[in-house]
Design a protein around this nucleic acid. Structure first.
Length: 260
DNA sequence: AGCGATGTTCGCCG
DNA sequence: TCGGCGAACATCGC
C-alpha cells in the first residue's frame, strides 16, 4: 500500500482512533519488525498515550511523551483498529491494547516495514538523508533538491534523498500527468516543464490522499487504472508501455510522454 | 512452480 | 559524489 498518500491516510486513521488512550498491553507478534529490543520497546510504551503524529515522506512519527514511535510501512504495511480480539487481522505484527478495551494493530505482510522508538524526527530525517516532504515542499525547496542532479526523472522521483514520499506507482502517474518521459534527465527540463512537474507532484499526491490511497477508485483519466501490460492511454488511446529501471518497472504512454 | 510486488539498502562499476 | 544496476530482505497471491 504505502506511498505518501497511503501513509498520510494511515496517519489520519491513527489520529482518529488511537490518540489519547492509555496503552495497557502490547503484543509483539513478530519481533523481526522491531529495530530494537522487544522488552525495551514494550516497557517504553506501557501506560503511555499517543499524543500527536507527524509524517515525513513515507515515514510516520507518533509522539507519546518526549519520544516518538516510528513506523515505516515497507511494501505491505497497514493499520487496523477493532473492538474484539478475534478480529485481529492476518499479519498483525504489533498489537496495542488500549484502556477502552479496543485494539490497534500494525500490519505487515512482507515484514519489510520497521517499528522503532526514536528521539527526534528532525534528526532522524537528517541521518537518513531524506529530502523535503514531497507534499509540503515549496517550489524553492524543490529547485534546491534537484540542483546539480542529472538522474532520469523516474529515478529522481523515487530517490527519497531528493524528495521524500513518492514511490513506484505515483511516480508513473506524476510523469504521465506532466507529459514527461520517465527516462528524460531531470537537468534537461526547461522552466515550464519544472513548474509542471512540481505542480503535478502536488496534484497527484493530494488526489491520492483524497482517494485515501484506494487505487481502484481513481478516475479513468489517470494512468493508474491503466497501469498494466494491456493498458490503453486514457488520453490518446495508444498502448501503455512497460519499461524497467534499476530492477523496478514502470508504465508510460510513449505517445503522450515523448522525450525531448 | 515461478515470478513479481505501492520499499530500502548495499556493493559494484563507470 | 553521482547515477545506474542488480541483489537481498520475507511472504503471499496469481
Amino acid at each position: 500500500m504505502p506511498e505518501l498518500p497511503e501513509v498520510e491516510t494511515f496517519r489520519r486513521f491513527l489520529e482518529k482512533h488511537a490518540l489519547n488512550q492509555v496503552i495497557k498491553k502490547i503484543d509483539v507478534r513478530d519481533d523481526r519488525i522491531l529495530e530494537m529490543d522487544e522488552r525495551k520497546f514494550i516497557n517504553a510504551l506501557l501506560e503511555k498515550k499517543f499524543i500527536s503524529s507527524q509524517r515525513h515522506g513515507k515515514n510516520l512519527f507518533v509522539k507519546y511523551n518526549s519520544q516518538y514511535l516510528f513506523f515505516h510501512f515497507g511494501m505491505s504495511g497497514d493499520f487496523d483498529y477493532f473492538e474484539h480480539k478475534d478480529d485481529e487481522p492476518k499479519h498483525s505484527r504489533v498489537l496495542f491494547h488500549f484502556e477502552n478495551g479496543k485494539y490497534f494493530s500494525y500490519i505487515s505482510q512482507r515484514l519489510f516495514g520497521t517499528v522503532n522508538i526514536i528521539k527526534n524526527p528532525k534528526e532522524f530525517i537528517k541521518e537518513k538523508r531524506l529530502g523535503p516532504d514531497a507534499l509540503n515542499m515549496t517550489f524553492e525547496e524543490f529547485q534546491q533538491a534537484i540542483e546539480r542532479r542529472s538522474a532520469m526523472l523516474k529515478s529522481a522521483l523515487l530517490n527519497q534523498s531528493i524528495f521524500a514520499g513518492i514511490g513506484n506507482i505515483y511516480s508513473d502517474e506524476i510523469l504521465f500527468q506532466s507529459h514527461l518521459h520517465p527516462k528524460q534527465k531531470i537537468n534537461e527540463l526547461d522552466d515550464d516543464q519544472l513548474k509542471t512537474l512540481f505542480a503535478n507532484i502536488k496534484k497527484v499526491l493530494k488526489y491520492g490522499i483524497k482517494k485515501k490511497g484506494r487505487l481502484n477508485r481513481y478516475s479513468k483519466d489517470c494512468l493508474i487504472p491503466h497501469r498494466d501490460k494491456e493498458g490503453t492511454c486514457p488520453s490518446c488511446q495508444g498502448n501503455i508501455e512497460r519499461f524497467s529501471l534499476s530492477g523496478r518497472h514502470g508504465f508510460y504512454c510513449p505517445n503522450c510522454q515523448e522525450k525531448i
